[in-house]
């Protein structure tokens, strides 16, 4: 069942088109990524879905509610972590959770959330004294305080050091494990690859691709290479060239290079095993989402 349905969204700011026919849907329980460079329209898209902005055209349904018309009902059931929000410097962690819990009709127990997100020790600490990673934990806890069905996490790890980023990824996995549908906005390829079940790639206000991260890499990363050294003296070219996905096979003595697309490497490896052809130095050139983005938009991903 689709939790979020977005169809033909359009939005312009003073004549400049920011969103042009954006459509996607998010299924229950999945982590859905919205990926794109800065200024691509990611944040505008989620802000329309959250009901913070009104689109010029298009329809949005979140849990069957229209964010523009049913704003109050919607706010009870969604949790939001906004990009670049802060809390008052002197607000203590426990007070923040207690306060935000009071906003909802059926909130979660804020002490339980403190415990769950490792904030119990910090409950008397003021927001101004928290580290970047601690703040992120607090923001996620605040997004979950209303016991939402859907959470929106916008640029969760921007400005964090690599270690804190990894730790934050684990937090997102824990949110997913609780069965909360998650929409993750990011301009980090690795983050989306690691966390998301499906990704909408947004560039210049339109959805240029929508697939699983692996699917995006497989179908859009262009030809890939697989290299190995044969341990037996035989010509593998006739054997491999006809396999699905394989586009070319080069041989230089015992060194073989197979070119292909999609999941050809698995097929080739299976075939080699089937024929009991032993190989060594097996190497597959891993394409990344970054390559997929270049293939999709014809230009490098600039942050």
């Amino acid at each position: 069942m689709a939790i979020i349905e977005v169809a033909h969204l359009r939005k312009a700011y003073s004549g400049r088109t920011v969103l042009d026919d954006v459509s996607f849907s998010v299924e229950e329980g999945e982590v859905f990524g919205i990926l794109g460079p800065n200024g691509a329209g990611k944040t505008t898209t989620v802000e329309c879905v959250e009901g913070l902005r009104r689109p010029d055209a298009g329809t949005i349904r979140v849990l069957g509610l229209d964010p523009a018309r049913d704003a109050r009902a919607l706010r009870e059931v969604v949790g939001v972590q906004l990009q670049q929000t802060q809390l008052p410097e002197n607000l203590k962690v426990g007070e923040a959770l207690d306060l935000y819990a009071s906003f909802y009709q059926a909130p979660r127990d804020w002490r339980e959330l403190l415990e769950e997100w490792g904030l119990t020790e910090l409950r008397r600490n003021r927001f101004g004294k928290l580290s970047g990673g601690q703040r992120q934990r607090l923001f996620i806890a605040l997004a979950l305080i209303g016991d939402p069905k859907v959470v929106f996490l916008d640029e969760l790890t921007t400005g964090l050091d690599p270690q804190a980023r990894r730790a934050t990824w684990e937090l997102v996995k824990r949110v997913q494990a609780r069965g909360v549908t998650t929409v993750l906005v990011s301009h980090f390829m690795d983050e989306v690859e690691e966390l998301c079940d499906r990704v909408a790639v947004i560039d210049r206000g339109t959805v240029v691709a929508l697939d699983t991260p692996a699917g995006l890499v497989g179908s859009n990363a262009g030809p890939q290479q697989m290299r190995f050294t044969l341990l037996v003296d035989t010509d593998p070219v006739p054997l491999l060239a006809a396999l699905p996905g394989v586009t070319a096979v080069d041989r230089d003595g015992a060194h073989v290079t197979v070119h292909g697309t999609g999941d050809f490497a698995t097929t080739v490896a299976a075939r080699l095993a089937q024929e009991h052809l032993l190989v060594t130095d097996l190497r597959i050139d891993q394409r990344s989402l970054e390559d997929a983005f270049i293939a999709l938009t014809g230009r490098p991903f600039d942050h």
């Binding site: 969604v78 929000t85 809390l87 906003f103 909802y104």
Partner: peptide, 10 residues
């Protein structure tokens, strides 16, 4: 962004 954060709550 505190006012904005509040507008995402009831």
């Amino acid at each position: 962004g505190i006012l904005r954060r509040l507008s995402t709550t009831p």
